[in-house]
Amino acid sequence: MPKKLLLNDKSVDFFKKVSELSGEVITLCDQCGTCSGGCPIIDEMDISPSQLMRMVMLGDEEVMDTKTMWLCATCNTCTVRCPRELDVSKVAEALRQIKLRQSFDKINIDKIPKEDLKELPQIALVGAFRRLTS
C-alpha cells in the first residue's frame, strides 16, 4: 500500500538535523542507485543506501528504526562512486549520532561472549565502540 508522507515542521526539522550533522546536501541525491549497487553489505540491510537517502530527504523519521544505519561499515565504496559526490556513510553516521547522543548503545560490552573478547583485536573493538556506542 502506498505510504502517505506528510511534510510538516517535524519532518523538516529532522531533515535539517541530518543535513547539519552529516554536512551533506542530501537533496542533491538523484536516486540513481549507484550507492546501493556497489554496497557490500546490502544483502543484510533492510533498506538500501539510496532508500536511506530518500527517506532522509523526505524527513521520514522511520528511517531511524532501520538496520541500515547500523550496518554501514564506512567502506566508502559508494562515496567514491556517487555521481553527485555525496557521502552516504556520513548520512548514516548522522542518523547514528542522533540515537547515540541520547545515551543509546548499540552494542554492550557485557553481552559480547568472553571467547569473542579474547580473540578480537583491539582495532576491531575500538572501531566498533567508536561507531556504535555513545
Binding site: I41, A73, T77, I112, D116, G127, A128, R131
Partner: peptide, 15 residues
C-alpha cells in the same frame, strides 16, 4: 578492494 566488513566483526560476525 571489496570491504571485509571491518568492525562489524564484533557484533555481526555472520556478515
Amino acid at each position: 578492494n571489496k570491504c571485509c566488513g571491518s568492525f562489524l566483526t564484533v557484533d555481526n560476525k555472520e556478515i
